[in-house]
Design a protein around this nucleic acid. Structure first.
Lengths: 122, 122
DNA sequence: TCGAACCCTCACATACATGTGAAGGTCTAC
DNA sequence: GTAGACCTTCACATGTATGTGAGGGTTCGA
């Protein structure tokens, strides 16, 4: 598919899709006319990238963790350097902490909303 | 306590503490000499703000949700406007989605790391 | 009383994700 | 063949969270 369709299906501007490609987060083949051509799985990948960006990860980190997420392991394990393993472990833990923080605060908000509803009901 | 101690105890630069104050996320009283003076609970508040910032929330939103998190409800329920309630519900759900995304990807990374370890063990 | 280590404000700089628009090529339908 | 809707690259702009440093006041110990 071309960039316009991908943009529409992922709710992402064309500008950003080109930016993600520049950052190495997605890849696009090119038609004879120079137009980008995306395959179907790119839709999910873009959505995933957006989710991670929204959760505070920079593109640099996203680029590093993306290869781990491909269903049929596209990355050869021997290529995994010790530094890369360390980075992944670090990010794994950091994501867990972030999620904890979000859930804790989400619960607090929910609790507050319940209290407000209770207050207004009486 | 003064800004230096708060900075050290929260692992946050002085510059940022002043910025958070400017954004209305923390408050400081002033000594006769103009120095900022923070009370003990501000330590936890700063840590919480940092966690939320790291999880992708902008200061504008953090400012809105912080009042809900104070232990003895400092905010009077009647002050909660419908728009504010709507915002809070929206952010609550958004935070849940973010946390889901983080945990999903965290699991994928963990799974990958396990596979690598398995590969290297054999 | 001097110097070090604080504090203040203000301003400019930077990285990153994003927007916007110009200048121009391609494709399709009328 | 021409108009409109695509696409390309390139460049400049913006908002947000940060860093850095200048210029200057305060406090405290030697």
């Amino acid at each position: 598919m071309r960039i316009g369709e991908l943009a529409e299906r992922t709710g992402t501007s064309r500008r950003l899709l080109r930016y993600y490609e520049e950052q190495g987060l997605i890849i696009a083949s090119r038609g004879a006319n120079g137009y980008r051509d995306y395959d179907e799985p790119t839709v999910d990948r873009v959505i995933q990238v957006r989710g991670l960006l929204d959760a505070g990860l920079p593109t640099r980190i996203i680029k590093q963790i993306l290869p781990c997420l491909d269903k049929p392991r596209a990355i050869y394990f021997p290529d995994a350097t010790p530094e890369m393993i360390a980075t992944l472990e670090q990010e794994r833990d950091r994501m867990a902490r972030r999620a904890e923080c979000l859930l804790r605060n989400r619960d607090a908000i929910a609790e507050y909303l319940d209290a407000v509803r209770e207050y207004n009901r009486v």
